Simulated scan of single mutants.
Amino acid sequence: MTTWFITGASRGLGAELARTAVAQGDNVVIAVRDPARVPEDLGKASNVHTVALDVTDSAAIPAAVEAAVRRFGGIDVLVNNAGRGLLGALEEITDAEARSLFDLNVFGLIDMTRAVLPVMRRQGSGKLVHIGSRSGFEGEPGVSMYSASKFAVAGISEALSKELAPFGIQSMVVEPGVLRTDFLDASSLSLAADTIADYDGTPAHATLEWAATASHTQLGDPVKSAALIYEVTAQNVLPTHLYLGPDTIDRLRVKLDQIHDDLNAWSAKSAATAHDDAA
């Protein structure tokens, strides 16, 4: 029986993934800041164990992992799902706002992964599933800091997939597009506290205007998305990236075209920057 440890699982994609795993008869550890917010159906399931955990509290993470191991004997899949968004032009975002975002989206993920890896190394197996974003392969206006945090997640996951292969541990980053969850609500999304009027009418503030009207009308279905994440994670071999959603696929094609154009324009001169004796 597979044991999952899912952070940020009180709602949204994390809760749907927990429901999917529970329905398949797997054990699920739900890590949430406030256990009172765990949905009733998950809280009552016999194969669910809830731990109170804020992943930005690095000192509290080892105890949560130990509680999971005591309850189910190990951890087969860690899903680093906890995270939030931050909108605003780069110039508008303060250091404090950016650091707070990275504390959750990046350092919380790092600390959780560090805590679980000894368990997985002892087992000789394990799967890391990091919830990134389509903003993790394409920087977009108005989401520079969020995008930076998800680029970091993608880079960490790719490196881990190589570092951990000798131990039988796999790593995958899931890069969803916009999902119809609470992510665009104030509970999950922060706006730069100080806006600059010069950005009105520019792409950065157009993103803010879109976010203000798009909540709960997003394209992606979190139930279907969770089902696909579960299906892929159940495979023997994980892909390095799971590109999730039609909008992600569309934007990935745009990104690939951009890479192709940039490469073709300068590849010859770029290759010529090697030392003459390198050949």
Rank of each mutant, 00 (worst) to 15 (best):
M1N: 09
T2C: 14
I6Q: 14
G8L: 11
A9D: 13
R11D: 15
G12C: 11
E16C: 05
L17A: 08
L17S: 06
A18V: 00
A18C: 00
R19Q: 11
T20D: 15
A21T: 04
A21D: 08
A23K: 12
Q24W: 06
G25T: 03
G25H: 11
D26Q: 04
V28R: 07
A31D: 05
R33W: 10
D34R: 13
D34Y: 12
A36L: 04
D41L: 00
L42M: 02
G43C: 05
K44N: 06
A45R: 07
V48Y: 03
V51M: 08
V55S: 11
A59I: 03
A59K: 10
A60H: 01
A63Y: 01
A63F: 09
E66W: 03
F72N: 07
V77N: 06
L78W: 04
N81H: 07
R84I: 02
L86Y: 03
A89P: 04
A89Q: 05
E91Q: 14
E92G: 06
D95Y: 02
A96V: 04
A98H: 14
R99Y: 09
L101E: 05
L101Q: 14
L101R: 11
L104Y: 06
L104E: 15
N105A: 08
V106C: 11
L109M: 12
D111R: 12
R114H: 02
V119Y: 08
V119I: 10
M120S: 05
R121A: 04
R121M: 00
R121H: 03
G124I: 01
H130F: 00
I131H: 14
I131P: 13
I131G: 07
G132Y: 05
R134I: 02
R134V: 01
F137G: 02
G142Q: 04
Y146N: 14
Y146T: 10
A148K: 03
F151S: 15
A152T: 03
V153L: 00
V153C: 06
V153W: 00
S157Y: 10
S157D: 15
L160E: 11
S161M: 08
K162H: 15
I169D: 13
P176H: 11
L179T: 02
R180I: 12
F183H: 09
F183Y: 08
A186M: 14
S188A: 15
L191M: 08
T195P: 09
A197V: 02
Y199K: 06
Y199P: 09
D200G: 01
G201K: 00
H205V: 00
L208S: 08
E209I: 07
A211G: 02
A211F: 09
T213S: 12
S215I: 06
D221N: 08
P222A: 05
V223L: 10
K224R: 07
K224Q: 14
K224I: 06
A227Y: 10
L228W: 03
I229W: 00
I229T: 04
A234M: 12
N236S: 03
L238P: 07
L238S: 09
T240F: 11
H241I: 02
H241W: 09
L242S: 02
L242H: 05
R253P: 04
K255S: 15
K255Q: 09
L256C: 14
Q258D: 11
I259C: 13
H260P: 04
D262V: 01
L263C: 02
S270D: 10
S270I: 01
A271I: 01
H275E: 11
H275S: 06
D276A: 10
A279F: 07
A279G: 05
